[in-house]
């Protein structure tokens, strides 16, 4: 092609939580290995829509740009994914970019994912160490446990698994796959296991693991490839055992 190739982008804009949403279209100059973040940066540099109207830069979250900080999750062509690893050449155009729908909107593509961090508190997703002073080495951990735990601890709290879960919505405060998987991680660790029952109890509360209905969308969209459905199954097993045994033998 002799003339410069263009990239068509449609962005859902919303000035604030209570403002009306609208779509804006942009036509950007194509470059090799362009991703959605680069598109948003192009727009910020020259915030003019396709039909020549001046607009404001698009507000969006991003940080590491290598899919490890979890910031830039959004809907791209209707699917929840990380914007930094969404390569333009692999996307159908016009590229539709929208904010995630399951979290409160802040502005444009920014949503508030505080719910996830609160959930991590609720399930006590930590190892309760006595203190940071010298207490010697940690417990021995077999390579087998490490190889199971490490992928789980890769969770970047992006929220994609909540976004695609049919059980997460305005009627339902389901904590989602990421949090359940964290419970599995901490319950797997030799020290973390000491508080296993506490975490399981938290997951048997309102919005807990019972809300999972096995649609298994989560595992498809996890950018870190975490075996979320496996985590849910394992935690489920531990949970009902605890509930049943707690009831039977106190």
């Amino acid at each position: 092609m002799s003339e410069t190739k263009q990239v068509m982008v449609k962005v859902k804009r919303q000035a604030g939580p209570k403002e009306a949403a609208r779509w804006e279209e942009f036509s950007l100059k194509w470059r090799p290995s362009m991703n959605v973040i680069i598109c948003l940066r192009d727009i910020a540099e020259n915030p003019v829509t396709r039909d020549g109207k001046k607009t404001t830069p698009i507000s969006y979250d991003s940080n590491c740009l290598e899919e490890i900080c979890g910031s830039c999750a959004m809907l791209i062509n209707g699917r929840a994914r990380m914007a930094c690893s969404a390569l333009v050449d692999q996307l159908e155009q016009p590229i539709r970019i929208e904010p995630m729908s399951k979290f409160p909107l802040v502005r444009d593509l920014i949503v508030d994912r505080q719910f996830m961090f609160e959930s991590l508190k609720r399930v006590k997703a930590w190892i309760p160490i006595d203190g940071t002073y010298h207490l010697g080495e940690g417990p021995r951990v077999s390579p087998e446990i490490q190889e199971k735990g490490y992928p789980l601890s890769n969770c970047i709290t992006c929220g994609n698994c909540l976004e695609v879960c049919p059980q997460v919505n305005e009627h339902n405060q389901f904590v989602g796959a990421a949090i359940i998987s964290q419970v599995r991680l901490f319950n797997m660790h030799p020290t973390g296991a000491m508080n296993k029952s506490e975490r399981l109890s938290a997951l048997m509360g309102p919005g807990g693991i019972q809300e999972c209905a096995n649609a298994q969308n989560c595992v498809h969209v996890c950018p870190k490839g975490i075996p979320l459905t496996e985590s849910i199954a394992e935690v489920n097993r531990d949970a009902w055992k605890q509930a049943l045994l707690g009831w039977l033998v106190g």
């Binding site: 000491m194 029952s197 509360g205 807990g208 693991i209 809300e211 949970a239 509930a243 707690g246």
Partner: peptide, 14 residues
């Protein structure tokens, strides 16, 4: 670390 009782929604779901 004692377990609290599971929520009724948990028991009903199960």
């Amino acid at each position: 670390a004692t377990a609290t009782q599971p929520d009724s929604s948990y028991l009903l779901r199960k």
